[in-house]
């Protein structure tokens, strides 16, 4: 069962790669990378059970956080062409509430 699930996840990751290579817009590619990351996290969790070591779940936890930050960073970079731009427009640096 675990092995079959890992195969299904691998197949869907391959489909995501197809969308990543073909996607006409930049946003299709970002979406494909994000969705690929979600499937990687699930695969890592299944992989932990497949090899019988629980360490892979910790890597999956880290990957879940990194995947989110990477998506936001890519989008921000392509919008502003720089990463040191404040996302909030109303509150400036050093300004208390």
């Amino acid at each position: 069962m675990i092995f079959a699930t890992s195969l299904l996840l691998m197949a869907s990751m391959a489909l995501m790669l197809v969308r990543l290579l073909r996607g006409p817009q930049l946003y299709d590619r970002v979406l494909a990378v994000n969705s690929f990351g979600t499937k990687t996290i699930l695969f890592l969790c299944v992989f932990a059970f497949l090899i019988g070591r629980s360490d892979a779940v910790d890597i999956a936890l880290l990957y879940a956080l990194m995947n989110f930050i990477a998506t936001i960073a890519i989008l921000k970079f392509f919008r502003y062409r720089a990463l040191d731009v404040a996302l909030s427009r109303t509150r400036r640096r050093g300004e208390a509430r």
Binding site: M1, T5, L8, V18, R19, L31, A32, S35
Partner: peptide, 17 residues
């Protein structure tokens, strides 16, 4: 649960295609 989850992930991926 595992198998149906895997199938649903595959359906979602094919939908993205």
């Amino acid at each position: 649960a595992l198998l149906s989850g895997g199938v649903i992930v595959l359906i979602g991926a094919s939908g993205v295609l």
